[in-house]
Design a protein around this nucleic acid. Sequence first.
DNA 1: CTGAAAGCGCTTACAG
DNA 2: CTGAAAGCGCTTACAG
Lengths: 334, 334
Amino acid sequence: MKDRPTILDVAKKAGVSKSTVSLVLQGSKAVKDATRVAVREAMAEIGYVYNRSAATLRSSSSGLIGLVINDLRNPFFTEFAALFQMELARNGFATVLANSDEDPVLQTQMISSLVEHGVSGFIISPSYGREEDALAVLQASNTPTIQVFRSLEASNPQFPFVAPDYDRGGRLATEHLLANGCRRVAFVGGLEGRAVTEERMSGYFSVLAEAGITPLVMTGQATRGFGKAMAAKLHSDHPDVDGVLCFNDLVALGVLSAAPELGLRIGADLRVVGFDDIEDCRDSFPPLTSVSCNIPDFAKSTAAQILAWINDGTAPPMTCRSPVQLIKRASSGG
Amino acid sequence: MKDRPTILDVAKKAGVSKSTVSLVLQGSKAVKDATRVAVREAMAEIGYVYNRSAATLRSSSSGLIGLVINDLRNPFFTEFAALFQMELARNGFATVLANSDEDPVLQTQMISSLVEHGVSGFIISPSYGREEDALAVLQASNTPTIQVFRSLEASNPQFPFVAPDYDRGGRLATEHLLANGCRRVAFVGGLEGRAVTEERMSGYFSVLAEAGITPLVMTGQATRGFGKAMAAKLHSDHPDVDGVLCFNDLVALGVLSAAPELGLRIGADLRVVGFDDIEDCRDSFPPLTSVSCNIPDFAKSTAAQILAWINDGTAPPMTCRSPVQLIKRASSGG
DNA sequence: CTGAAAGCGCTTACAG
DNA sequence: CTGAAAGCGCTTACAG
C-alpha cells in the first residue's frame, strides 16, 4: 500500500496523459493499439498496481459482492460459496464473505459493514429473526440483492428469490421410495414452520395422499445427531416404517450411522433418501440416495443473475426455481 | 450507492465542520461529548452511511483482509474460514474470500485481485505449484501476510507461518493406539512429499521406532474415497494391521465406512484414529477418535496476530505451533 | 484518438 | 476543541 506507482507515473513513463492510461485500464476501444501496448509495457516496467478504492470512489462501483450465509459450516452452503466465489472471480469480481451463523443481530451488523464497503451486490441466504432490521439496511443501500435458498419474506417478497425446486425434489424422492416397495415412509428433520422444511415436505405429503398412506413427520434439527436419534426412535416406536425421506443429507447420514447399532440393514429393512446430494453421499455406507440441487449450476446461474443486474440493470424474476434431480444409490435399494 | 449523504451533509445538519464529523467517525477523544452526540444524531436522522472507499483512498487502510484457501470445501478449512471471518468482523474488519481450489494459477490471479482491492492483510493456506508467482505478488504488495496450515517455502520462509503441532499430534495418536494394544499400526492418506503429510507422519515414525515396530505407510488423496479403498487393501494385503492412523478425518471416515462390508469391527478388530477432529467425528459409527487442532482457538489467535501486525506493526514470529489434543472416542477402543 | 480540469468522500496536518 | 485547505488515485465529461 505504500509508494505504489499511480497512473500519473505510468503516463509519464509511457509519454501519454493520465486520461489515456485510465482508458487503457478500462479496456476502451478508443485507444490506438500502439498506445495501448506502450501503456501496458510502462505499467509492467514500473510495477503498477490498479487502485480500486480510488476507482470505486469516483465511479461508485467497487467490484465487490457481499455473500451473506446463515451457516457456512454446512457443506451444502460451503460448496455454493466456494463455487460462487470462483465464478465471480472469473468475471473480475471479488467476494466478501459473511457467516451470520444463524444470528440475526450479527447478520445486520455484517450487512451494514458490507454496505460501507460499497459492495455492488448482495447474495444472501438469510438467518431468521428480526427480519425488518436486515431488510431495512438492504433496502436503504439500494444495492441489487438476491436471496438464495431461503427467503425472509415469503409472503411479500422485496428481493428476488432463487432456490432449488424443493417441492419437486420431495415428490421424486417419495415416489421413488414407494416404487421400491416402501409401505410406510417417514419424513425426518428440518425445523418446523420454516419455509424450506415445508417445501421439502409438500411433495412428500402430496405423493402420500395420492397413495393413501398416512404421513409420519418428525421435525427437528438438520444435523447428523438428530438423524441418529430419530433412527433409534423410529426403530422403537414405529417399527412399521420402512422408508425415510430426510430433510437433508446430514440427517440422512445420521440415520445411516445409527443403523449398525440397531441391527438395521439400510436399503433393505429401511430405505433412506437424503436431500442436497453433498459429496459425502458417495462415500457413506451404503452410498446415500439423495435429491441433487446441482449446486455447480446453481452457483453459476446465481452469479450470472447478479452480474446481469449490476452490469445491465436487468433484475431477475422475483422468484425462480432451479431444477432438481434424484440420484439413486444403495441406501434406497438402488 | 447513489445519493448517499456525505459527511458534509452531516456537518451541515449538525452545525459543525466536516473535520469534526470525521473525528467523530474515528472515535477521536478530542471531540466534546455534546458535539459527538449531536453529530451521531444528525447521522441517524439523514441516514448517513460511512464510505470506506473514500477513507481507504486517503488513509490507505481498507479494513479488508484477504483469505486465500486452497480447498474451501474441506470442512477443516471451512470451519477455520467461518470462525476467522466472524472474529475479524468483531474487530471491524471484513473478509474477502478466495478459494484457489488447489490451482496455483487461479491463486496468483486471486491474490492480485485482492491486492488491487487494497486488502490490509493476507491469510493464506496456499495451493502448491509455481510458488514464485504467488510469492512475488505477495512480496511486491508489501502487505502483512501470514501462512496458515501449509507453507510455500518451508526451507526459507519469507512470511510467518502458523500451524498446529502436527508432529505432536502424530505422536499422541500413535502412543494411544499402542497403549490400547495395537501391534501393527499403519499410516494412511496424505499426499507424499508434502510438508503436512511428513509432519503428521513424523510423530508416528518416532513412536514406532521407539517400540521397535515396522511402519506401514500408504500415502494418497486425503479423501473418504481413498480411505475406503485403503481399508479394503489393508484387509486383504495386511491382515496383521490392527491400528490405523489416518492423515485426516475424511480418510478415517472412509475407513469406517468400509468396515461393515469387510466385516471389521472398528474399535476392536481395527482401531482407527483421524486427524483434525471435524464435527462429523462425533456422529460417525462408531464415533471417531481424532487429533483436535482446536480450530476455534486457532482462528481467534490467527486473527489476533494479523490485526496486531496491521494495527501496531508487530509481526508474529516466523513460525508458531499451536497445541493439539487427542480426543478419544470409540473408534480406537476408547 | 488524446489532454486539461474537476470531482468522488473521506483524512490529515495545520491554525486558531 | 473546531475550521479551512489540500490531497489520496482514480474516472468523467468536455475540448480539441
